[in-house]
Amino acid sequence: MSKPILTVKQLTKRYGSNTIFENIDLTVNEGDTIVIIGPSGTGKSTLLRCLNLLTKPDGGQIWLDDLEITAKGTDEDRVRQHIGMVFQNFLLFNHLTALENVKLGLVRVKHMPEEEAEKKALEELTRVGLADRAGHYPGQLSGGQQQRVGIARALAMDPRVMLFDEPTSALDPELIGEVLEVMRKLALDGMTMVVVTHEMGFAREVADRIVFMEKGSIVEEGSPDELFYHPKYERTREFLWKITELYGKKEAKS
């Protein structure tokens, strides 16, 4: 019986007089892979960043398990230890090696002893297939490799849920595959994930639920099957198939 890890109620975000999104409701159950799709600029990334409180919402509530993290007085740093995030631009710590990147949170935030942290970091790097690059600096890694390190870094903290903000959008086409592969394995292993992406192939094959957002609200939400083959709204069909034309075919080939 799956219980909700992330519950979002009536979430709203504004920048000045612009409303980015309004009254968003979302539930992410344990083990789910939720993929959020939609045209650029509809607030998908902003929504994701609200989930780990990197961006403060202007209205609504968010629960992580039973804790309301939007409540006043919440220790945000603590909360973020349990939510992993992977960024479009990887955002690896440039002055540290791959191994040190993964280790940093363990040593400084979790106060793990050096040896233990080193071991765990190496494990995570192995998990994403980069154990042999442990001593390399970000500047010495390809985009795909950097992103996999980014995933390892987030995984090392043993998060309850992983958030992916367009993880492959900044990658060369050839390198997208290796990252999606890591993500697919993660999903199969049972990790709870919320992914913002344009990769329709991934959405169709890996997602438990797809959420289609446009102009600051959720247009439609459902299983891949439902959204691709029996969408309720014309707009949904339009968007999905247009994007699939661009991205999906490529995915099928690789």
Partner: peptide, 19 residues
């Protein structure tokens, strides 16, 4: 964004600045 990535891993502002 480096600051943001550091916070995402659970570091406080001071830790992010320092490390």
């Amino acid at each position: 964004e480096q600051m943001m990535a550091a916070r995402a891993v659970g570091m406080s502002k001071m830790q992010a600045i320092r490390y």
